[in-house]
Deep mutational scan, measured.
Amino acid sequence: TEHYTFHTEEQAQRAAKKFKKQGLPVTIHEKNGKFTLQVN
Rank of each mutant, 00 (worst) to 15 (best):
T1H: 12
T1Q: 10
T1R: 11
E2V: 14
E2P: 10
E2M: 14
E2D: 10
E2Y: 14
E2F: 15
E2G: 12
E2T: 13
E2W: 15
E2K: 14
H3Q: 12
H3V: 13
H3F: 14
H3N: 10
H3G: 08
H3S: 12
H3W: 15
H3P: 07
Y4G: 06
Y4T: 05
Y4L: 11
Y4K: 04
Y4W: 11
Y4M: 08
Y4A: 04
T5M: 09
T5I: 12
T5H: 10
F6M: 02
F6C: 06
F6H: 02
F6G: 00
F6N: 00
F6Y: 10
F6L: 02
H7M: 11
H7N: 14
H7Q: 12
H7V: 09
H7F: 10
H7P: 11
T8R: 03
T8V: 03
T8K: 04
T8A: 03
T8F: 04
E9L: 15
E9N: 07
E9Y: 15
E9A: 12
E9V: 12
E9M: 15
E9W: 15
E10W: 11
E10S: 07
E10R: 09
E10K: 11
E10H: 07
E10F: 06
Q11N: 05
Q11P: 01
Q11M: 08
Q11E: 15
Q11T: 05
Q11A: 14
Q11H: 06
Q11K: 06
Q11G: 07
A12W: 01
A12S: 01
A12Y: 00
A12L: 03
A12V: 05
Q13H: 08
Q13M: 13
Q13V: 11
Q13R: 12
Q13W: 08
Q13N: 08
Q13K: 13
Q13T: 06
Q13A: 07
R14K: 11
R14A: 13
R14Q: 12
R14M: 11
R14V: 09
A15E: 06
A15H: 05
A15N: 03
A15M: 08
A15I: 06
A16Y: 08
A16P: 00
A16K: 03
A16T: 02
A16D: 01
K17E: 15
K17R: 11
K17Q: 13
K17T: 10
K17H: 10
K17M: 14
K17A: 14
K18D: 07
K18W: 15
K18I: 12
K18N: 08
F19I: 05
F19D: 01
F19T: 00
F19Q: 01
F19W: 06
F19S: 02
K20V: 12
K20M: 13
K20A: 10
K20H: 10
K20Q: 13
K20G: 06
K20F: 09
K21P: 02
K21A: 14
K21H: 09
K21V: 09
K21R: 09
Q22M: 14
Q22P: 02
Q22V: 08
Q22H: 09
Q22K: 10
Q22L: 13
G23R: 04
G23T: 01
G23W: 03
G23E: 02
G23D: 04
L24K: 06
L24M: 09
L24R: 08
L24P: 01
L24S: 04
L24F: 12
L24T: 06
L24H: 07
L24V: 11
P25D: 15
P25I: 15
P25M: 15
P25E: 15
P25T: 15
P25F: 15
P25K: 15
V26C: 10
V26K: 00
V26Q: 00
V26E: 00
V26G: 02
T27Y: 07
T27N: 05
T27E: 10
I28W: 04
I28A: 01
I28R: 01
I28T: 02
H29Q: 11
H29W: 11
H29A: 09
H29K: 09
H29E: 11
H29S: 11
H29L: 13
E30L: 09
E30H: 10
E30G: 06
E30Q: 09
E30I: 09
E30P: 05
E30N: 07
E30Y: 13
K31G: 06
K31I: 13
K31V: 14
K31D: 11
K31L: 12
K31T: 12
K31M: 11
K31R: 10
N32R: 03
N32D: 14
N32H: 06
N32Q: 05
N32A: 05
N32F: 06
N32C: 07
N32S: 05
G33D: 03
G33C: 04
G33K: 02
G33A: 02
K34M: 13
K34G: 06
K34P: 00
K34N: 06
K34A: 08
K34F: 11
K34R: 09
K34D: 05
F35G: 02
F35S: 01
F35E: 01
F35R: 01
F35A: 02
T36H: 14
T36A: 05
T36Y: 15
T36M: 11
T36I: 15
T36L: 13
L37H: 01
L37S: 01
L37A: 02
L37E: 01
L37D: 01
Q38L: 13
Q38H: 12
Q38R: 07
Q38I: 15
Q38V: 15
Q38K: 07
V39L: 09
V39S: 03
V39R: 01
V39E: 02
V39T: 04
V39H: 03
V39W: 07
N40K: 08
N40H: 14
N40D: 11
N40P: 07
N40S: 11
